[in-house]
Design a protein around this nucleic acid. Structure first.
Lengths: 116, 116
DNA sequence: GTTTTTAACATAGACAGTCTATATAGACCG
DNA sequence: CGGTCTATATAGACTGTCTATGTTAAAAAC
């Protein structure tokens, strides 16, 4: 059971990005993708073709801001951070996701030991 | 926070159906949808336009069988049940979903109390 | 200081699974 | 027999992902 099948991020990517920014502070696109990939042991992989459209949607909704900065290697990159509005949206989306995940775990009768 | 937003079932519906059949025995389409809806307190709602295509996909893959029977109200309905192949597929899909959910919970830093 | 390589951003197009809306068939009822 | 209800069915829109490819600017190599 190596990598997750396609479509498994569906509907959760914007939330993952917002939360990563909220928890870790400003990051650039590739940094966010790396963060998600490595902190999930490569289980959750974010492709560039999903990442940038998601970042643009978040920006269009006013959930993130960005500015050009330099990475540690000296490359220019857009560093994103959440806005107040974005954190607000994240909070309710997260609540909603947790509720539906709880419902799924109950419906599927997954023992809690397997989740913890 | 009433009903879950659109798209939240994405990628999990076939698993939900298979698991419902595995746990509760043969059911017909509407029965499955009702089961999922009521057992999640209306949080997870399966629309007919999602349900039947999913059932057809499951059948095409050989994961379910069906036969005409009568409901308690005497209406004819297709009663579905899982095949051996379907239970096998369910088991690995479930394992995969649990793993990615665990990764999400960790990434999002959701306290376990909120899930249990 | 010119060329090559690389990191980061970007986008077009395919695809899959959901949703909305509508349609059909059979059973029961008056 | 016409009306209503239950269950199944499907067309078409929409959304968010993926694959594949392209662009830009800075660093590295020479």
């Amino acid at each position: 059971m190596g990598t997750i099948r396609a479509g498994n991020l569906y509907g959760t990517l914007e939330m993952l990005i917002l939360r990563a920014l909220e928890l870790c502070g400003p990051m650039h696109g590739v940094g966010i993708a790396d963060h998600i990939g490595s902190r999930s042991d490569g289980l959750l992989r974010v492709e560039e073709g999903s990442l940038y459209p998601a970042l643009h949607r978040l920006q269009a909704k006013g959930f993130v801001d960005w500015e050009w900065r330099k990475t540690e290697e000296g490359k220019r990159a857009k560093f994103y951070e959440t806005t107040r509005k974005g954190r607000h949206a994240l909070s309710s989306e997260l609540e909603c996701w947790v509720a539906s995940t709880r419902a799924m775990l109950s419906l599927l009768e997954v023992p809690m030991e397997e989740v913890k």
